[in-house]
Amino acid sequence: MPPRSSASPSLAQWLLIATLIIVADQFTKILVIGAFQLGDARPVTGFFNLVRAHNYGAAFSFLHTASGWQRWFFLVLGLAAAAFIIWMLRRHGQQRLFAWALTLILGGALGNVIDRAIHGYVVDFIQLHAGGWYFPAFNIADSAITVGAVLLIVDELRRVRRG
């Protein structure tokens, strides 16, 4: 492992950023739970609504209608992914783009794990739509995971280009 310079972010710094994502995610979900009943929707713009939706499954409601075992499966999967990501951050925290990607995914995954542990489902509240087409509702944690995944792809493309 290469030596760390004083300018290299430490594991603690990456974990702090992940914690800020978790706090923002949970705070917004608390606001939505307090202001909306399940199924409520409030238009914000012509393409964006605030809603309250519960997702018992995973991305795009995958396994949403399963008999309940998926709560524990996705909770354990999220915790296992978090442990792996922390291990990766410990080893590669000096690779800034890669570490940013992992940190965003970590914060998002744990934000949704907290929902599954507390509620048994994930609270979604952001809904985008256009021309009668509605994208599935999502939340800040999902957004962080998505941006992190895009950054992982960009990081890998840059790595291949350099190689």
Rank of each mutant, 00 (worst) to 15 (best):
A117T: 02
I114Q: 08
Y121G: 13
T28P: 03
Q95Y: 13
I33Q: 15
F135H: 11
L151T: 12
L50D: 00
F84P: 00
V150G: 02
Q70W: 01
Q70G: 01
V154H: 02
L16P: 05
L15H: 03
Y121D: 13
F27T: 15
L110F: 14
E156A: 12
L89A: 02
G107V: 10
A12S: 13
A41H: 06
G34Y: 04
I86Y: 08
I118G: 03
Q94T: 04
I114G: 11
T146S: 15
V122T: 13
G68F: 07
M88I: 10
A80E: 00
F47D: 05
A80C: 11
S5T: 15
T19I: 09
A117P: 05
W69E: 06
N139I: 02
P9Y: 07
L102D: 03
A58F: 14
L151S: 10
A101V: 07
R90W: 14
A80L: 10
I33W: 02
H92P: 01
N55H: 08
D142G: 05
R91I: 08
P136N: 10
R158V: 01
A101K: 09
A12C: 08
L157R: 07
R71Y: 01
F60C: 08
I153Q: 05
R71L: 00
A66T: 09
F125W: 13
R90A: 07
N139H: 08
G68R: 01
I140L: 12
F98D: 00
I140Q: 01
N112L: 03
F48H: 09
R161W: 06
F138G: 00
G78K: 04
F98G: 02
R96C: 09
A99Q: 03
I33V: 11
S67A: 11
F47G: 09
F47H: 14
F125R: 00
I30L: 15
A137M: 05
G111N: 06
H92E: 05
L15G: 01
S6G: 07
G108Q: 09
T45V: 13
P3K: 07
R116M: 12
L31Y: 13
L89N: 04
R116I: 14
W69A: 06
V150A: 07
G68C: 05
D40E: 14
Q37L: 13
L79I: 15
V154R: 01
D124M: 08
I153Y: 02
R162F: 04
R158F: 09
L77K: 04
I30M: 11
I145L: 04
I145H: 08
G57I: 11
G132Y: 09
I118A: 14
S5M: 12
A130Q: 01
T19E: 02
I22V: 12
R158T: 01
R158N: 04
